[in-house]
Design a protein around this nucleic acid. Sequence first.
DNA 1: AAAGCGGGGAT
DNA 2: ATCCCAGCTTT
Length: 230
Amino acid sequence: MVQRPADQRLLRFRRRLLRWFSRHGRSLPWRETRDPYKILVSEVMLQQTQVDRVRDFYDRFLTRYPTVADLASAGPLEVRESWEGLGYYARARNLHRASQAVMTEHRGAFPTHVEQLVALPGIGRYTAGAVASFAFNRRAPILDTNVARVLRRIFGVRGDPKSSRVQKRLWRLAEASLPRKKIWEFNQGIMDFGAMICTARNPQCGTCPMADICRAPISPPLPSRRSCRL
DNA sequence: AAAGCGGGGAT
DNA sequence: ATCCCAGCTTT
């Protein structure tokens, strides 16, 4: 079976991403643990919220609620107060309910399958994939704004990014890109790549290791006013 | 398919 | 002033 160009791009992307992450990946508080509870807390906080903003809240929240059981047995008002300043307060309520569901419906043991995780309140497809891959090293794809942007550019996916058709295509790409092993590294890496190199504005195409396989590189190496057409 | 949900930082 | 951000739920 001969490799088609599209498959070559995919293989190279996967290999280069892992190499890039091993050298340039960020060290973040929630990367020092495999505890599904702590990872879930970080993921929920990170929904529509930037990394730098989450750091302080993450530590404070876990100090107050070190385990799922601690959070589950806390009062709603107390939990809501711990979330003050983060916004999107439905997240706090759902996280609280999710912790209670883990205790009552799973006997305190976090579910390890994406389908089970998605069934928990406040956990969508992205967060389920994140917990499954980060805590349990399952071969589950993730698709957040970072991943979506990276995949759209490198594989040249046109069309409205919000449309279900493009979303479906991107999820398929996210899954196809996954290596057999090093799932944790790949998923963490592709988000770092989107946050550090393949950024929404002023992408670092000049130093990008994917430049030669990307379907949407910056046209000329012109100074200032750099923009990406995807 | 589209709206609603917070708030802070960058441009 | 506008865009962007480790999205999910509800309509």
